[in-house]
Write a protein that binds this DNA or RNA. Structure first.
Length: 735
DNA sequence: CAATCCTGATTTTTT
DNA sequence: ATCAGGATTG
């Protein structure tokens, strides 16, 4: 692709270096290439690499761009996410806002603890909804509003406490020297607003700014960007209003739509040639998005030929939907034209991945969930990171309370709360306060502790002390390793033998991450390591070396492309989601989301809907998504269930599958039943521990007569799931 | 006061 | 199905 000459519009964008520039980049229009080439051109003008700042929304996008620029110019240019820019600026300058240097970044779980604390302090009897208030705090911060800038008139009657809650929350976060995700932007915005001299400092540092996915910027981000460029106006923003899908996170499409009002001298370039998708896919997407009102009209075209029509399949249940996807994956894979890593399944909600996973496991289809529960969210990893944070900070309450009773020392919630209060009232850090307690020093707010508890505190503190010493003299990797060993964590893991092995492996993974980071970072401090991990999302862990299909939400698919794309769950109330039902604006965002999903596909696009789905606790009858009707039928080919009879079997699944009737209204294979061959079933009964080739060790919960003879319900410990197996086919070994 | 067991709610999307 | 919060027990 990089050999193909650029089209005139691309050249125009790439050669416009000074002044404001808006690049309206349709899906697949070669945006990344333009952005990187433009940076190369700026550098060729003699601009120093450190004067350029590129901002993206994901670490992945940032990493890719940075790498491409490096390869082309051998220069390192600062390209990072908005949040890591915030972290970088605050690490240098947060003291101006009254925080200590070396702040901790709290994730959602951490933050919820703080919010609950605040709410119970304000009124313990009132059952206030911490999630709701956190959402409001986030909203306020996204719009750069401080607690005392909240207009009470905008509040509902049940939200009148909000300004007080917000204020208390910020105070508490400051007390623990912690910031939340939104603070990384909000506090940076405040800093620029309250300290013009600081703003000037950063204005001087970066004279060329480039913002990717500008349609998804929110109020704070807008303010930060505009402040930074207000002197030189060398600002290039790239985006596509039709791909704005984060308004619920405060993103404002007006930022991109009004760019020409903000910068009347702005040059506007429209990239409308799509190099990615076949005609049928592209035309269908174009027609769908036309249903939205108030768009910036555009004409995205492709010269890649019409390609295959979009395939639409209506399944009976989510299980047969998964079955269909599995078979189609096998079809393309066996045909040999598409590797697994070039196929993706997109769904609207995370919960939908379950049915697909179950099916893929049975069919031995290698898959990866992109953006599911992150490695760094695992309990054991969070525990060790919390220890490291206490080692590093000593005032961080959430990490303190998380670790103080690991392993179990007999210090429960009540004692923790006493310590928190005592430390807070006497103005000590948590660790310093505990030290005074243990040493029997006089305190302004002493608390009573049993001898046993004092001893427990002492052992905790001595471990901390030890680790701090190690931190001073050893490498980061050694510190992490010692933290795992000396805290007694490995012993603690033995309490749950089921998960012990897996958790140990995850901790080993953490040690190697520490080592990797140490080798790659310019300045490998513990603080930097913790910051990097806080900002790292599960999206960034994807391992491209393995050939496997990707499963992800449509949101996570933004910015990616695949040869084959499946969009599943195309049903009313799911996609578009039920929560958008009574808002025209929200529905248009759902449509954009669908547009984003469709335009990820290069060669083949499959759309699936289901007649009956288990959703929100019950089985519901589903109606096909309106989006299916909005796509012109000439681009769609309906696939009917009889497809099963002719299709090849999925890989690794050559065994018996229930036959399919010739009828249209066929009964599809009951996919809950797992078939395999041989067994010595006579000796098996409920309560027996068994081994299955694919699912590992399990316990038979129930044996009963089913449609295919004797059936077993088996609970497998490996993934904590219960499966129904046909006894005479199940390859079970008694243990 | 801590640990364990049990119950009841709970799924939109995430840097 | 999983998890947080509550009640109970030790």
């Amino acid at each position: 692709m990089s050999n193909v000459p650029m089209n005139p519009e691309q050249q125009d964008a790439v050669n416009t270096i000074y002044g404001p520039l808006l690049v309206l980049a349709g899906a697949g229009s070669g945006k990344t290439r333009v952005v990187t080439q433009r940076i190369v051109n700026i550098l060729e003008q003699g601009v120093h690499p450190s004067e350029i700042l590129g901002l993206t929304f994901t670490n992945k996008a940032a990493g890719e761009m940075k790498e491409r620029v490096r390869q082309m110019t051998h220069h390192n240019v600062l390209i990072c996410t908005f949040h890591s820019l915030g972290a970088r600026i605050l690490r240098e300058s947060i003291q101006a806002l009254g925080y200590q240097p070396g702040f901790t970044i709290y994730d959602e779980q951490d933050v919820e603890k703080i919010m609950k604390l605040c709410l119970s302090e304000i009124n313990p009897s009132l059952k206030l909804d911490s999630k709701q208030f956190l959402g409001m705090v986030s909203n306020a911060k996204n719009n750069l509003l401080a607690p005392d800038e909240i207009d009470p008139k905008t509040l509902e009657s049940d939200q009148l406490l909000f300004p007080e809650v917000y204020k208390r929350y910020q105070a508490k976060m400051m007390e623990y020297n912690a910031v939340d995700f939104d603070d990384l932007l909000y506090l940076t915005g405040r800093l620029f607003k309250l300290h013009p001299e600081m703003l000037e400092h950063y204005q001087k540092r970066w004279s060329f700014l480039l913002i990717d996915e500008y349609q998804d910027t929110n109020g704070v981000q807008y303010s930060i960007v505009n402040n930074l460029v207000s002197k030189h106006h060398n600002l290039c923003v790239v985006g596509d209003p039709d791909q704005s899908i984060y308004s619920w996170r405060g993103a404002n499409v007006r930022n991109i739509l009004d760019f020409e009002l903000d910068y009347p001298k702005a040059k506007v370039v429209r990239l409308e040639q799509n190099y990615r998708s076949r005609g049928n896919i592209l035309d269908a997407s174009n027609h769908l998005i036309k249903y939205n009102s108030g768009r910036l009209e555009k004409n995205l075209w492709s010269d890649r030929g019409p390609g295959e029509k979009i395939k639409h399949y209506t399944a009976d249940t989510e299980k047969s939907e998964a079955q269909f996807v599995a078979e189609k994956i096998a079809f393309h894979y066996d045909k040999g034209d598409v590797p697994l890593k070039e196929m993706a399944i997109f769904y609207r909600t995370n919960a939908q991945s379950r049915a697909l996973e179950d099916r893929f496991l049975i069919h031995h289809i290698p898959y990866v969930i992109v953006g599911g529960v992150s490695f760094y969210q695992r309990k054991e990893v969070k525990d060790i990171l919390a220890f490291l944070r206490v080692v590093h900070s000593g005032v961080d309450f959430v990490s303190f309370s998380r670790t103080i009773n690991i392993p179990k020392r007999g210090i429960g919630d009540t004692t923790i709360e006493k310590i928190r209060l005592g430390a807070s009232e006497s103005g000590f850090s948590l660790v310093a306060y505990c030290e005074s307690l243990v040493q029997g020093k006089p305190l302004s707010y002493p608390i009573k502790l049993s001898a046993k508890q004092k001893e427990a505190l002492l052992s905790y503190l001595s471990i901390l002390h030890e680790l701090r010493e190690i931190g001073k003299s050893c490498s980061l990797k050694e510190l992490v390793k010692n933290t795992i060993e000396r805290t007694g964590y490995l012993q603690y893991l033995k309490e749950d033998p089921e998960s012990e092995q897996e958790r140990k492996e995850n901790l080993n993974g953490l040690v190697s991450k520490a080592m990797e980071w140490e080798l790659s970072a310019e300045n490998p401090t513990l603080e930097g390591f913790l910051e990097e991990l806080s900002l790292k999302s599960s999206l960034d862990e994807a391992d491209q070396s393995k050939d496997r299909v990707s499963l992800m939400t449509v949101h996570n698919g933004k910015g990616l492309e695949f040869d084959v794309v499946f969009l599943v769950g195309m049903e009313e109330d799911l996609f578009p989601h039920a929560n958008s039902r009574d808002s025209e604006i929200a529905q248009e965002e759902e449509r954009r989301l669908c547009y984003v999903g469709m335009t990820r596909a290069r060669e083949y696009l499959y759309l699936c809907d289901v007649r009956q789905r288990f959703l929100w606790g019950t089985t519901r009858l589903q109606r096909p998504s309106r989006f299916l009707k909005e796509i012109p039928s000439q681009h769609i080919e309906k696939i009917r269930p009889s497809f099963y009879a002719k299709s090849p079997q999925p890989m690794g699944y050559r065994e018996e599958v229930s036959h399919v009737d010739e009828d249209d209204d066929v009964e599809e294979p009951f996919s809950d039943e797992i078939h395999a061959e041989t067994a010595d079933i006579d000796r098996l009964a409920a309560g027996d521990t068994v081994f299955h080739q694919d699912f590992g060790i399990g316990v038979i919960k129930q044996a009963y007569q089913g449609s295919s003879g004797l059936m077993f319900k088996v609970f497998f410990t490996k993934d904590s799931r219960e499966r129904t197996l046909v006894a005479k086919l199940a390859r079970l070994k008694k243990l």
